[in-house]
Amino acid sequence: MAKKILTVDDDPDIIAFVKTVLEENGYIPMIAKNGEAGLAMVREEKPALVILDVLMPKQSGIRMYREMRYDKELKDIPVIVLSGIAKRTFLRSQEALTEFGDQPVPEPDAYIEKPVEPEELAEMIKKFVG
């Protein structure tokens, strides 16, 4: 059975692109346009993988990633961060939240800085969900 993969991004271009890559590689794409909607969908659908943007309206990818890692049921779902923001910046933001008293979280399973080639993204997905 085809696996569900959730992409969370507010940029329609990225959504269309990732959706096509997923379809071409035989996965079922699911879409959320911000962190809040993304988190709700993860809880409901339990996808095999989440492809997550960082800068989004409403809840950002930084917050959504933490929420997933705190949640027992979600913490083992692999997350690929796909963002225009440098990995360095993402990790620093996570550290800052930890310093403010939140629980520390592990680094994301993979981090891809935009732009990404379709083959590269497909290979990365295959690595985590087969």
Binding site: D13, A16, F17, T20, V21, E24, K114, P115, P118
Partner: peptide, 20 residues
């Protein structure tokens, strides 16, 4: 350059989908 890179990403994504 950063901003143009973003546009380029969109264009590349678009051509990828058009090709398919």
């Amino acid at each position: 350059a950063h901003y143009i890179k973003n546009i380029l990403t969109g264009l590349k994504g678009g051509t990828y989908i058009v090709n398919i």
